[in-house]
Design a protein around this nucleic acid. Structure first.
Lengths: 340, 340
DNA sequence: CCCGCTGTTGTTAGCGCTAACAACAGCCAG
DNA sequence: CTGGCTGTTGTTAGCGCTAACAACAGCGGG
């Protein structure tokens, strides 16, 4: 089987000749068309096997207008969050019989997103998932070239595209409430970059909890998700040790920077300062001390976004945009302790 | 421009009609064919703009037999190494005008790799990069369905496919030599899973250095790249504290687990035990203490592998397999110190 | 004036597949 | 025996593009 003797790969007509049928009958067998005699079917299958024939999907896509390929646009797939999300999408897509074409953005501007979507649309993808964590990206989705189903991940309240996201506000509430519950007077916050919707949501959840409890609301410190920015914030917070007894970092990497800075300054965690992170990256459990954090189920987000997208593709017509929210989960470890 | 009034998207013939030329002339303009009068060209371009015409790449691929799409097969794109490599590939591919279709493997067996390659070949990709860190994966590449250019990343001495990789042996040597240079009698090793070529290379480099220096070679401890496995190894090593003064972990995550275990057992790093990792993930600099490690330039690996692949694709015929090695780099930080 | 050359454009065929319809055998109802 | 149905197969016409060749104008040389 499959002795592809030298020449060009076999096509449907070759199979048809061997099987003694028309190429259309071969097509019917391949597409599981019901009206094919069982005996004919096996003859065709045998010929396919003998020739090692594989259907040309490009030719198929040309006539069906469906490529069974999905596009994914994501920002910096090196980061744990996007990488896991894309992974979830890819897994779910392949299970559904779709290919996945990815485009990583390195700039944040809306032009980049629009370009990427155009680029994928050119290639003939059947639908696109945009991992759009920045407000600007989310806005770019509002006035799309359209004509092709799009789902946003972490995309805020984008106009008429469906959105799947983790409830950032709820996650931040979990963090702040835990710290307050531990007896801390208030909670400082190292926030993510202001253009990011996730950063915004976390600030909002944190602030709300403090406001509801009638506690003082310290100015949040600026970070950019990197451990280094957390480290810088940590140095500043360490200088205020005594006043500050609890910090909520907007992600685990910044929390790591915080821990490092505190260690250098001799500020003990959690004895003098409690720290809570966000994401639950695989490393967090082994930080010194192990990090109390909020887990986001990125794979679930990827999976759900794909489900929503497929629903739209299979409907064939624009559906009412969906809004799907995945709940975050509190993970207790050793970096947060009761206030003394 | 581009007022796509309701109906189906414009095709080349539509542009031709508007511009008053044949569809073939439109094709010539699009393909930068030299023999087109300048005035005709501008008329065609104007028509394209007016209609918002976009060439159908699927139809083009059908006749040219080139999809300008590359396939990437990778194992667990959630890990930092593969994720960065894929990122480098994707960037380079897009700059060269290629799309990238990815398939993430979750099982390690060769069937998975072969399936993935088949799957991508079906889709009509022009070439494939296989991020194949396991020996079994690398072997799977030896007897490929072939007919399509393939480049392996971290693929060992695979038969007749080109390979791009970081020099693991040299990296491990760097780590072991540094530790020995610090005055340690010998160096323990926490190795990666035995099926991984990278793990193998690191063991080999480490062992060679010790042998050359005539030092005792402790049995390596088994790990699986995860922080948890490093943690378990750390617990065992801590029990031997005093005997063991230096450890080389095969990756940074396991080194993190080591640090955690040592902290729990009250073994101070680097005062009592020096630790060196491998990879230089972004977090390493902020571990407690900051991790001395070996940096791998994953993005460069991705870029190079794409260059090799494109060379093969553009040659149109099988080339002699290339072997490209990227040197690792030693990064000194605080987790390794002179033996007392 | 005819020939052949170059530059520009159009015409035709076909990539490999599916959709739509046509053809035909076998069967049962009337 | 005829009409019409069902199941099975074949024939034809494209999908939207590029490749190959044909056609033709304009030009200079013999």
């Amino acid at each position: 089987m499959g002795s592809n003797s030298g020449s060009r790969p076999p096509v449907m007509a070759d199979v048809a000749r061997i099987a003694g049928v028309s190429h259309q009958t071969v097509s019917r067998v391949l597409n599981d068309h019901p009206n094919v005699r069982a005996e004919t079917r096996t003859r065709v299958l045998r010929a396919i096997d003998e020739l090692g024939y594989r259907r040309n999907l490009v030719a198929r896509a040309l006539v069906t207008k469906h490529s069974r390929t999905l596009g994914v646009v994501s920002f910096d797939t090196t980061l744990y969050g996007p990488a896991s999300t894309v992974y979830g999408i890819e897994r779910a897509a392949r299970e559904a019989g779709y290919f996945v074409s990815i485009v990583s953005l390195r700039t944040i501007d809306r032009a980049g997103v629009v370009d990427a979507i155009d680029y994928l649309a050119d290639q003939g993808v059947d639908g696109i998932v945009v991992v759009a964590p920045q407000a600007s990206t989310a806005r770019a989705l509002d006035d799309l070239p359209l004509g092709i189903p799009v789902v946003a991940v972490e995309g805020g309240h984008a106009g008429d595209v469906s959105v799947v996201s983790v409830d950032q506000v709820a996650g931040a509430r979990l963090a702040a409430e835990h710290l307050l519950g531990l007896g801390h007077e208030t909670v400082s916050h190292v926030r993510g970059p202001s253009d990011w919707l996730e950063a915004e949501g976390r600030v909002q959840g944190w602030r709300t909890v403090l406001a509801e409890a009638g506690r003082p609301i310290p100015d949040p410190l600026d970070g950019d998700w990197s451990p280094r920015s957390g480290y810088r914030a940590g140095k500043r917070l360490a200088a205020m040790a005594g006043d500050v007894t609890a910090v909520f970092a907007a992600n685990d990497q910044m929390a790591l920077g915080l821990l490092r800075a505190f260690a250098e300054e001799g500020v003990r965690v959690p004895e003098q300062i409690s720290v809570v992170g966000f994401d639950d990256i695989p490393e967090s459990e082994f930080f010194t001390p192990p990090l109390t954090t909020i887990r986001q189920d990125f794979t679930a987000v990827g999976r759900h976004s794909l489900e929503v997208l497929l629903r739209q593709i299979e409907a064939g017509e624009p559906l009412r945009p969906e809004r799907l929210v995945v709940p975050p989960e509190f993970v207790a470890r050793a970096s947060a302790a009761p206030a003394r």
